[in-house]
Amino acid sequence: MTGAIATRAAEVPDIVIDVQGLTKSFGGRPVVKNLSMQVHRGLIYGFLGPNGSGKTTTLRMLCGLLTPGSGHGTCLGYDILTQSAEIKRHVGYMTQRFSLYADLSVRENLEFVARVYNLDDPHAAADSAIRRLGLENRASQLAGELSGGWKQRLALGACILPGPELLLLDEPTAGVDPKARRDFWDEIHTLAHQGMTVLVSTHYMDEAERCHEIAYIAYGELLAQGTVDEVIAHAHLATYIVTGPDLAELAERLKAMDGVDMVAPFGTALHVSGRDRARLDAATKDLREQGPQVWSPGEATLEDVFIDLMSRTKDNFA
């Protein structure tokens, strides 16, 4: 036990994840490129990005399921290249696809996890997890027969059963109804409050706003990180909110204009943004003055920022 602690960077590292230059390719195609990130203890860290952006690959590299092509770093103070056995003992990883045993009951699944992690009393550990999850009535039901929301609760329950210090959740709320999603996030916040660090990947914007800090990844590259406000401020995106008639035609005209970087409809309004306020103002001057639409200066939303970030990266690749 003492030996295990001695090998760590610090007794209780404040930075739970600290990686530099992680790169991973599959069949010559880079999936994650030169990714560096730091995650502090007790935070909920949102990992955002479109499908296929490298979120899952990054999570798998962090918990030892994939070996990075290059780069180095630590997870809970353990080296991600050489100490994956230790990392597995202290990290709970919830896979994107339900990966508990469908042909085992809820209780049997939990007892299996408890035994694999060498908990003293697997039966009691499973019992308390079942109570905590509110699964008393379903304890003997087969896991494969549970509904999506319950499967997700069970998967989270199995992850936190051994008391990990870090949770890696890969799109945990995909395909789950809004009520179950809210309950799930309440649970995550309770866990973080108790000192657990949570790294959660998602592509829901409302979930991003529930995180303490976020990182945005697209095409394998980390494009922005910080709090939601920091990320928005850092993007320097000047935005107008346009309301009125014929927004669809207006949008088509705006998209072709120089200085307008992003046009996106939001309900009955149109968000028009540009990276350079002077150029955006110059380009839209006539339209703003003539109408018939009403132009009002607005704040860029997180989604505006992400869509803009994505299109910028795409431009770089084109």
Binding site: L65, K88, Y93, T95, R97, S99, L100, V113
Partner: peptide, 13 residues
């Protein structure tokens, strides 16, 4: 094939 290997491999066994 059932996808349970991902979970199993992330555990200390």
């Amino acid at each position: 094939e059932r996808g349970t290997m991902e979970s199993l491999l992330s555990m200390p066994i």
